[in-house]
């Protein structure tokens, strides 16, 4: 038994700087990001153009498929490929900005709560409890109703309702980091609170932040689709992946491609972001560098 204990795969990490997984994640994300940026040039059709004579055509490799609509058409005869390309701009843009916003709010409050403790901690964590108690969709509905549905409002609402995820994780981590000896040492060597937080505590809390951020990006894309589905998100006919998914749901028994392709787009994005997040986490941790 004692022999096997020394053989645990602690150092069994690939010696390559960039693993296949990371390369795949980066490649997929570049592809998705690139096609979103260049959607107007790449898309064969106007995503809003309806061609009622060509409604519900399957992808080109199926029996009634048309060569000019590679991924088929929806119930209004709009080209699915073009809509996915254009939809990516909204979905990715909204997702990234919303995650950034919620990370900024959540990490800041989590750091303050965990590091200073006492009243600051109690106050911030009670606010977190309030946010956790109210269903975030309900909260978002209320705010969007009040402010009116616009792209900016959607992003603000998404960021302002999901920051608690970051705040809780960061607080829990900081609670343990601040008790470690190097923090006391840094204080003895003249670090004042702000520098101590940014140079010594935050870098050591980075791992869970990156993990949560990658998970949240996936969540934000779905979140946006939920808001769009309720009519509170981005307004039709602007295509978004979430809205296409929700819309295609009605036809899933007869026309599977309506929901499947935007679903695949979301899945691929989430997978790529997660792989890249893993790599980023390992790269930023000097202990894991070989």
């Amino acid at each position: 038994m004692s022999v096997t204990a020394t053989m645990l795969p602690v150092v069994a990490r690939p010696r390559r700087r960039v693993s296949f997984r990371a390369a795949f994640g980066l490649g997929a994300l570049l592809l998705i990001g690139g096609s979103a940026v260049f959607a107007p040039q790449l898309a064969p059709w106007d995503p809003a153009r309806q061609m009622l004579t060509k409604r519900l055509r399957p992808p080109m490799w199926q029996a009634r498929g048309l060569r000019e609509h590679p991924l088929g058409t929806d119930h209004l005869g709009r080209d699915i490929l073009s809509r996915i390309l254009h939809g990516g701009r909204i979905s990715l843009g909204v997702g990234l900005t919303a995650v950034t916003l919620s990370a900024l709010i959540g990490v800041t409050l989590g750091l303050l709560a965990g590091f200073f403790g006492g009243r600051a901690d109690a106050l911030i964590m009670r606010i977190v409890d309030v946010f956790l108690a109210i269903p975030y969709i309900l909260l978002a509905m209320g705010v969007v109703f009040a402010l009116g549905p616009s792209l900016l409002n959607v992003i603000l609402v998404m960021g302002a309702t999901r920051w608690v995820q970051f705040a809780r994780i960061v607080r829990a981590d900081v609670l343990s980091i601040r008790e470690r000896e190097f923090v006391a040492g840094a204080r003895a060597r003249g670090n004042r609170p702000l520098r101590l937080l940014l140079r010594h505590v935050l870098p050591n809390a980075l791992t869970p932040i990156i993990v949560v951020a990658t998970l949240e990006l996936a969540f934000m894309i779905i979140y946006e689709s939920a808001l769009s589905f309720l009519g509170l998100g981005v307004q039709p006919p602007t295509p978004t992946w979430g809205w296409m998914l929700a819309d295609g749901r009605n036809y899933v028994a007869t026309a599977w491609w309506l929901a499947t392709f935007p679903g695949l787009a979301i899945m691929l994005t989430v997978l790529a972001v997660n792989l890249l997040g893993d790599w980023l986490r390992d790269t930023l941790d000097p202990r894991l560098k070989v």
Binding site: R180, E181, F182, A188, R189, P203, N204
Partner: peptide, 22 residues
């Protein structure tokens, strides 16, 4: 803060007393 320059501390656990990210 100014006086602390004149007094320093060496810790017990050399695996916990150095910031692993620096």
């Amino acid at each position: 803060w100014a006086t602390r320059q004149r007094m320093q501390i060496v810790f017990q656990d050399p695996f916990a007393s150095l910031n692993p990210r620096m």
